[in-house]
């Protein structure tokens, strides 16, 4: 056990002060101190991606990052992407195209996919498969996840064009 420290995180646009041991993993800070339970824990070794969040513009596995390392950073979780009043196009597309089954990987999967589409708004199937390879799903076999991401990309590009 080590001495607790104060950390400041901006989570989904809200500044949060937490008092925690520096060794605390970010996923526990989010889930247990801030009650942000969208990101899940699946492996503790950065393989499964259930804990994926976006930190300062990059996809990060929050199960292998200490809260101390996240001090002062901007964090986005599934809860920050969209909600009941306005779903993110990816949330809508995963529903439409059966891109999930048990739902456990889904928050990490969608959070990662959002980042992927931000970086590459027109990915090929191969680019999607490669770009999503840090997130494991045990239920879907990925086929409908790929389809969901393609559909969301098309939808997002269409609304961008309409806006321009």
């Amino acid at each position: 056990m080590s001495k607790k420290q104060h950390y400041t995180l901006t989570v989904n646009g809200t500044e949060e002060e937490v008092l925690a041991e520096p060794r605390e993993l970010l996923i526990y800070t989010l889930r247990e101190r801030l009650n942000i339970t969208g990101p899940h824990i699946g492996c503790e070794t950065s393989h499964c991606g259930a804990c994926t969040v976006t930190i300062d513009g990059k996809s990060v596995k929050s199960c292998t990052m200490f809260v101390a390392q996240a001090d002062g950073k901007e964090i986005t979780t599934i809860e920050g992407l969209g909600g009941p009043d306005a779903l993110h196009p990816l949330q809508q597309a995963f529903k439409e195209h059966h891109g999930l089954q048990c739902g456990y990987c889904t928050p990490g999967m969608i959070t990662r996919a959002a980042k992927l589409l931000e970086e590459n708004p027109n990915p090929t199937e191969e680019e999607i498969r490669f770009g999503m390879s840090g997130n494991i799903c045990r239920c879907t076999g990925y086929q409908n996840i790929v389809k969901s991401i393609q559909a969301a990309a098309a939808e997002m590009n269409a609304s961008k064009e309409a806006a321009e």
């Binding site: 889930r31 339970t37 899940h40 809860e79 529903k95 999930l100 048990c102 739902g103 456990y104």
Partner: peptide, 21 residues
């Protein structure tokens, strides 16, 4: 039929055992 479960899962609002506090 589209799944009725998906609204909560896609928004990170599933309720798994480790979410219980």
């Amino acid at each position: 039929r589209k799944r009725v479960e998906d609204a909560r899962f896609t928004q990170g609002k599933g309720n798994y055992v480790d979410d219980i506090k």
